[in-house]
Design a protein around this nucleic acid. Structure first.
Lengths: 224, 224
DNA sequence: GCTGTCTATTGAACATGTTCAGAAACGGTA
DNA sequence: TACCGTTTCTGAACATGTTCAATAGACAGC
């Protein structure tokens, strides 16, 4: 979090200060209540300075994304050491991903509204978000690669992206989940994982190869 | 569309005028470019008057929803006369639904952003949207009721709502669909329908009854 | 026709993200 | 030190949806 450490140019320190204050505010006050003027005021600078270092409010959200996904990675990696079962490993990535989001559930609608437009710079599928997106895709890739159960090689390429999309859909469900402790989202996830475990042997069936390939292609096409 | 017809109180005529101008502008200019001041100006009234008749901009979007869904119903009903096959009837409702949205695809991201928050009054699942939502749920209900193929009665209650949710998800895919003529969305729909047709006989299997029931319950829970 | 009450309308005010012309600070070079 | 170009910073300005006190209009009851 605190990147305003040690020595750096004045400019870098100002930038880091604005960033840290913004991120803290996002966590405490959410997206809407975190106004540019509030950030500027707390940082002791003018609105113009804030927009000089970060061209828009969404650029600051981008910083938040990165922070969250890095923590996601940090939380998932050690757990991935504990199992070589494919479905279990995927479950670890999904569960730790949801866990990172949990503190933001109060403000999730605000963030969702700002992020859901395909034209928004903070849309998880946008090119501006590629850095944090690739962290999640990479986690899924590693989850697959480190599993004892090997999948047909032809799926290796697109499956991680498709799983990342699945994670986004799960997050959408999560935003709408009003149950205590997001129990419904957990149930949906565990049920999906169970279903996946049961149907995984089918992937090896020749007859299903082509429809699966087509399904994967269609899903991948969303990101175009 | 034009509801500013014939005799009515002055107030009703002003309201209808604002409504008609707003709806036309939404169609021509989208959500963002349709500003309150522009509506007021075109209607020859002040901003205050616009907000007197419609408490918020989203109240005007609500009127648009209603208009679109009524046209959806008008487009679907005659086609439903032409088939008693369950899957085909569902297909008719889905396809005519997408057809109504098509003119708005240019502006879909703007509308999506405004509507996607669970707290938004124009969220399709909100209580404010119940009237237009029920039109779609009703269409699915009629599609099921008029089919030769009867489903187990226990599904009749919740299935229409679940299908409406499916329609919303399809619309989400549609927003992100950049292919010509929304070819990808069509493909996804037709593939889903084909899959449904193939797996429909399975519904009668005793073993699958309980998991299906649970799945339906989980889906229904989104709207809570 | 007068009066009083509700309805309808007005336009200024507010908070918001963003832009931008200009001021200030800085850093290197003559 | 003096000068100049670049970097950094400032605060006013703009457009937006929404609110609200004040005003005008409509209309019923007498």
């Amino acid at each position: 979090m605190s990147s305003s450490v040690g020595t750096a140019t004045k400019s870098e320190r100002t930038r880091a200060l604005i960033r840290d204050i913004a991120l803290r505010s996002f966590r405490e006050r959410g997206y809407d209540q975190t106004t540019i003027r509030l950030i500027a005021s707390e940082a002791g600078v003018s609105v113009g300075t804030t927009n000089y270092h970060f061209a828009s409010k969404n650029d600051l959200v981008q910083e938040l994304y990165l922070d969250v996904q890095q923590q996601h990675r940090a939380a998932a990696l050690p757990l991935l050491e504990t199992s070589d079962d494919l479905v279990e490993r995927l479950g670890i990535v999904f569960r730790t991903g949801l866990a990172q989001l949990e503190p933001y559930h109060r403000f999730a609608p605000e963030f969702l509204s700002a992020a859901v437009s395909p034209r928004s710079s903070i849309n998880p599928l946008s090119s501006d978000s590629s850095e944090s997106r690739e962290i999640v895709v990479g986690l899924f890739r590693e989850a697959i690669a480190g599993a004892a159960d090997k999948l047909p090689a032809e799926f290796d390429e697109d499956l991680p992206s498709a799983l990342m999309l699945g994670h986004l859909l799960l997050a959408l469900f999560w935003v709408y989940d009003t149950s205590d402790g997001r129990e419904r989202t957990s149930r949906l996830l565990e049920r999906g994982l169970r279903l996946l475990k049961l149907s995984l042997p089918l992937v090896r069936l020749r007859v299903l190869r082509k429809p699966l390939r087509e399904l994967l292609d269609l899903i991948t096409e969303v990101q175009a």
